[in-house]
Design a binder for these strands. Structure first.
Lengths: 121, 121
DNA sequence: TATATACTTAACTCATAAGTTAATTAACCT
DNA sequence: AGGTTAATTAACTTATGAGTTAAGTATATA
């Protein structure tokens, strides 16, 4: 898996890992918290591996607190995906009025922090 | 790969396939058109396989025109991804005033079971 | 000090994804 | 009919991803 974006998409291509992200979207959690819903289905080392995949993909970060490893969402990974998606918005935003909104957005082209286009909603 | 969304993400986790989608975002193309940029790197059957992955993921559709197989983007697959992404918008949409607005309206508190990692947002 | 808790690493199995070459199907063109 | 173009299928190799169990590393606590 050469590039980082591929790594991120690959990380997302697993329902267990997406469920972990969903859990983390509600707030920080350590490994055993995250593992809990899955321990019927898999072992703890399997969970560790999933988290490592998410971490390498830039979708979460892990820190240390005594013997715990609190994890939290890393928005950078998600941003990479969102930025990639942006070029296809015109295709999946298919309802005509929404398409109209999109066209207004691209003509306004508001910049944020010298970065990418911000979207009006 | 159980679920369809995983299949879609897995399809996107390859730079060749993403390049094919990028090409198709410019308009329909048949298999040999799509293959052209990659024939230095891989065989035609490999291209066929990539396209099959994209098709099964709902990212493209293929039709028949004599011996050609014109392919085009299928927005449904992209929409699935966009819809999934939507729940994380608050994380990757980094504009501070918007985030500020969100934080004013919502206060979330949650506990992890060890009473350790409590986090205000 | 020793025991429990939280998590990781190691070593392995098994399934599958990505590529190959060779053969095959299908439609068109003289 | 015979040949060319377009694309797929078949059979195979190889690498990797996802899981396992068992052992190891830290840190807290009795």
């Amino acid at each position: 898996m050469q590039d980082h974006l591929s790594q991120t998409f690959a990380a997302l291509a697993d329902p267990t890992r997406r469920a972990m992200l969903a859990r983390l979207s509600k707030g920080e959690a350590n490994v055993s918290d995250l593992a809990k819903p899955f321990l019927k289905d898999m072992s703890l080392p399997a969970v560790t591996k999933h988290l490592k995949v998410l971490e390498k993909a830039g979708l979460i970060t892990k820190s240390k607190d005594a013997q715990w490893r609190p994890c939290k969402l890393n928005s950078e990974g998600l941003k990479d995906v969102a930025d990639w998606m942006e070029q296809y918005r015109i295709f999946w935003e298919e309802s005509l009025d929404r398409l109209g909104d999109y066209l207004k957005t691209v003509t306004v082209k508001e910049k944020t922090k010298g970065k990418k286009n911000e979207r009006k909603r």
